[in-house]
Amino acid sequence: MNAIEVRGLRKSYGANHAVAGVDLAVGEGEVFALLGPNGAGKTTTTEILEGHRDRDGGEVAVLGVDPATAGRRWRADIGIVLQTATDAADLTVRETISQFAGYYPDPRGVDEVIDVCGLTAKAGARISSLSGGQRRRVDVALGIIGRPRLLFLDEPTTGFDPEVRRQFWDLVRSLAEEGTTILLTTHYLDEAEALADRLAVIAAGRIVAEGTPRTVGGRDRAPATVSWVDAGGPHELRTTDPVRAVTELAARGRISQLQVRQPSLEDVYLDLIGAKA
């Protein structure tokens, strides 16, 4: 059974077709990234999968259950890291996390979660006193305290400094190691590339490409750019056979600053959403 199975998902707000026929399949234990510009339908899709929003059409099964009618047992199996929340400002980090632990049948240890989220030094601090990045780690802690089989991470590292972001990636990897399925929505392509087994690009309410970070949008087959400088100045050449191009260049004699560049995930992504926007 796939952890997430979506066919023909549709949702409109008035005349705006926010989600216009999305198909998606995420396997058990997979880290799947959903990429797309603001307003592409990422959040609407995710919120439907989380059970926060009704849909207009299509079939949805999350852990084998339709989120629109799912009960408490299903909610015990999922974890949600919200995009923006400023709640529980007057409770301490530990109070909030242990409060939420009590909602689940089989929670992780409160101290263990505080530790893996890097909050040990702040455990006794009121949430209102935390920095944005620390607050976000509390969100993550609340998302994983219930030992979810499926975790929704919505823009999890927005506002993180680079070091904290790396730590967070390690946390996501260790959750994936434990077998947690993760659906990640993000703006950061390096984050998707670092974490995702597979990803999909959504634009104007449709999936426009799907694959692994290496292959999505034909990235592995797209022409490479070879650039160099010789007596005549800088040159650039796009080719599907960069090895041959470099060999020929070497035979020609003195050149400098030789570079072979495969299209980055960002190049492919911008192409994909540019074509559809």
């Binding site: 059970g51 926060h52 909610r75 015990a76 999922i78 949600i80 923006t84 929340a85 709640d87 219930g146």
Partner: peptide, 10 residues
Amino acid sequence: GTLKRLRGTP
């Protein structure tokens, strides 16, 4: 976000 967060728990 209190209610939204609670809605995502059992």
